[in-house]
Amino acid sequence: MITLAAILWAAPAADLNPPRVGHEPPTAADLQGNWRLWFEVRDESALFGAALYIEAADGQWTTIEPEQVAPEWFEVIIPAKGGLRYFFEVFDEHGNGPTRVGSSEVPFVLKAPVGKLPVTRPWNKSVEVTPPKVVVPWWLKPPPRRVVYAALGTAALTGLAYGSWSLLKARPVAKVTLIPIGASESP
């Protein structure tokens, strides 16, 4: 029993999640006049059964095995023409899947290519996302701590001075000398 528990504890956690696929249908062909279909596939385990389904003229679906051109990236190169209908699917080695982008019922449909595809590849370029510089208006910024302390100190001193003044005003402390004199008899 202890041995079994140790084995279970030592065994890696099983991958129960299907692959995650990202795909952006192209709008431009490469310099050779081909579509370059790229699929970004991520999974915790090794991948299995990646396939691109293309609808032929007779309505039948044919399979093309994509080429893995970079870690997590698959590519299929086919002559560029409008009306290409396709979808992609992939499993992982644990049988999780298939994960599809598009389907036989709702495939991707490409229009005629427009423009030329840049030579840069998504798996090569380092995506550096520069966060937008947010400029906070000065009136929304929290004041510096020293300003807060100075304001609080000034307010406290002002209150203390006002309180002292009020106290002095309410409680006379000026000392005077009284000189008794007789009131005149006649008003």
Partner: peptide, 19 residues
């Protein structure tokens, strides 16, 4: 007698003593 000492500027006040 009574004396009004509200004027604090004076330091000597005569006090009227009634007869």
């Amino acid at each position: 007698g009574r004396v009004d000492l509200s004027n604090t500027e004076l330091d000597r006040h005569p006090v009227m003593i009634q007869s």
